[in-house]
C-alpha cells in the first residue's frame, strides 16, 4: 500500500515514490498538482493567494503560499527528481467563494487564485488537463502520483 503525505496550507510536496499526496479544507485557496506522467514524478501545492505584494523582500525565499511561487517550487522539485519539465500536466482544485457577501460584488480571492494559476501554468508551458474549481463549497484533494489520478471530494 502506498503511504499518504498530507500537505497543509501554504505547503508543497514533490515525490517520485508511489505515494498519495492529500490536502483538505480547500476553500478559496487553490491546490495545484503538476506531474510528469511518463516518469511518475509529481507534486502538489496548497496556495492561498495569487502572488506576493511586497516585492521589496527579495531575500525572502519562495513559498507555496502564493500561486506563482508554488508553481515554481513544484517545477523545481520535479526537475530535481529528474522529471521532464517539457511534458508536464497540471490539475487545479478549489478557488471557491465560501461567503456570499465577502469581497462585495467582485468574484473574490478564489477566482483570482484560479486565474493566476491558469495564467502562470500557461507561461511555464505546463498543460492544464483538468480542473474542479469555483462554486461555493470546500474541497478535499487526493493525488496518486504513480497513477497520475487526482480525486476530489467535498463534505457538503
Amino acid at each position: 500500500m502506498s503511504s499518504t503525505v498530507n500537505v497543509k496550507t501554504a505547503e508543497y510536496y514533490v515525490t517520485d515514490k508511489e505515494e498519495i499526496i492529500e490536502t483538505g479544507s480547500i476553500g478559496s485557496c487553490v491546490a495545484i498538482v503538476i506531474f510528469d506522467p511518463a516518469a511518475h514524478i509529481g507534486g502538489m501545492a496548497h496556495a492561498m493567494l495569487p502572488e506576493r505584494h511586497t516585492r521589496s523582500q527579495a531575500s525572502v525565499g519562495k513559498t507555496a503560499k502564493f500561486v506563482d511561487e508554488s508553481i515554481d517550487l513544484l517545477l523545481e522539485g520535479i526537475r530535481e527528481l529528474g522529471g521532464d519539465v517539457k511534458h508536464l500536466n497540471a490539475k487545479i482544485v478549489g478557488g471557491a467563494k465560501m461567503f456570499k457577501h465577502l469581497s462585495g460584488d467582485n468574484k473574490g480571492i478564489g477566482f483570482q487564485n484560479i486565474e493566476a494559476a491558469k495564467k502562470y501554468l500557461k507561461a511555464k508551458h505546463v498543460a492544464l488537463t483538468g480542473e474542479d474549481t469555483g462554486g461555493s463549497h470546500g474541497r478535499l484533494a487526493e493525488f496518486n502520483v504513480h497513477a497520475g489520478i487526482l480525486k476530489v471530494d467535498s463534505k457538503i
Binding site: 496550507t9 476553500g27 465560501m98 461567503f99 465577502l102 480571492i109
Partner: peptide, 25 residues
C-alpha cells in the same frame, strides 16, 4: 460591522477566505 455571512462547510475552507481578506503578509 458588515452584515453577517454564513458558511456551512469545512472550517479550514471557510477560514481561508476570511484570513486573506484581513491580511496577506
Amino acid at each position: 460591522h458588515s452584515i453577517p455571512d454564513v458558511s456551512v462547510d469545512m472550517l479550514g475552507a471557510s477560514l481561508d477566505e476570511i484570513l486573506v481578506e484581513l491580511d496577506t503578509e
